[in-house]
Amino acid sequence: MKTQPDSDAVGTLLRHVLDLLEGDVAAVYRDQGLPEYRPRFSPVVRVLAAEGPLSIRDLAAAIGVTHSAASQTAAQMSRAGLVTHASDPGDHRRRLVALTPKARALLPRISEEWKATAAAMADLDAELSTPLGLLLKEAAEALHRRPLRERIAERSR
């Protein structure tokens, strides 16, 4: 029985690699006694710690995800007691996401894990023909220039 996704099924393979990476980082947090903390929270925590409270739109732009993804992550973080949502004093129609004291207390642990993960990724990159982060960035840039949909349409003519 085959245990690895087909190399031609790129989407499946990307999800598989992401599951492996995120699963291991989540296990590190569980081992540290933080079972509710998700790897996807760290970019949000890091941006909010550096920038202060942000709207979902600004948060999404800062971490490079869609508005919907940022909103869902902020909602999960709110349920975990890591962020609050409050009205923007300058524009009451806008809601800002801010770190809670609980999240601020976790900053040293999150920072240490981030550094350890970066070092572990450097170890992984040493085994690869191209560093994974660079390859993914290159792929994203190429797809922004010419989306896969357009490429498929050209091939199906």
Rank of each mutant, 00 (worst) to 15 (best):
R46K: 13
I63D: 03
Q76N: 13
S55D: 03
V47I: 09
A60H: 01
E51M: 11
V45H: 14
P53W: 05
G64R: 00
A62T: 05
A75M: 08
A50H: 15
A69P: 04
A80E: 03
L48T: 00
A75N: 10
S68N: 14
M77W: 00
A50N: 12
T66V: 01
A75P: 11
S68F: 12
V65Q: 09
E51A: 15
S71I: 03
A61C: 09
T73V: 02
S55T: 03
S55V: 01
G52Q: 05
A60C: 04
M77Q: 06
G81R: 07
M77A: 02
S78F: 05
A49W: 11
R57A: 14
S55F: 06
E51T: 06
R79M: 10
G81T: 05
Q72V: 01
Q72A: 14
M77C: 00
M77H: 03
S71Y: 08
A69S: 10
A80P: 00
D58Q: 11
G52S: 08
A75K: 10
D58E: 13
A80M: 00
A61Q: 09
E51H: 14
T66W: 11
G81P: 10
S55E: 03
S71N: 14
M77E: 01
A74V: 00
A70F: 05
A61E: 05
L54D: 04
A75L: 12
L54V: 07
S78T: 08
P53G: 01
V47R: 07
A50E: 13
A80D: 08
P53Q: 02
L59I: 05
R46T: 13
I56S: 10
R46D: 13
T73M: 13
G81V: 08
I63T: 02
A70L: 00
A74I: 00
I63C: 05
S78D: 10
L48C: 09
R79T: 08
A70V: 08
V65D: 01
S55A: 09
V45L: 15
A50Y: 10
S78P: 06
R46P: 13
